[in-house]
Amino acid sequence: MNRFEWTPEYSVDDAEIDRQHAELIAIIDELATQLHGEGPSDGARSVFDHLAHYVTTHFAYEEERIARAGYPDDKIAAHQAEHNAILRQVQEFERVFESGDAAALQEMMPFLYGEWLIHHICGTDREYVPWLTAAR
């Protein structure tokens, strides 16, 4: 059984963003499995690289999509700021992988799960749903 799985409850009423969120959650789930082992492994590193790459594309798509749906400029700016903060943190963890600091690596799951899944996907991302629905 997977730890984290996308369910229709997470839906933001846009099939493509939903697909990307499902993929992201699947990557986070895989990373959790890898990280729960004995410290930094090559497997964890390559899953993480995939995540870092995937998220850049996803954020760009999402920002473009909500702008097209008429999401107000100030809200887009705030959303982008949150994306940028996540990207900065992702870069920070790239450095942690480089340094092989096992203790610092343990902070990755609370970040991915708390800040990203709970606060962002289940929080901030929900705020644009009415705009996407209205634009359909």
């Binding site: 730890r3 409850e9 959790a32 990280l35 729960h36 343990q106 902070e107 799951m109 609370p110 799960y113 708390g114 709970i118 606060h119 289940c122 929080g123 929900r126």
Partner: peptide, 14 residues
């Protein structure tokens, strides 16, 4: 596996 550090704030029912 550690999911959330102490001090984290859950905001919504969802």
């Amino acid at each position: 596996m550690l999911l959330l550090q102490a001090g984290f704030v859950i905001n919504t029912v969802k």
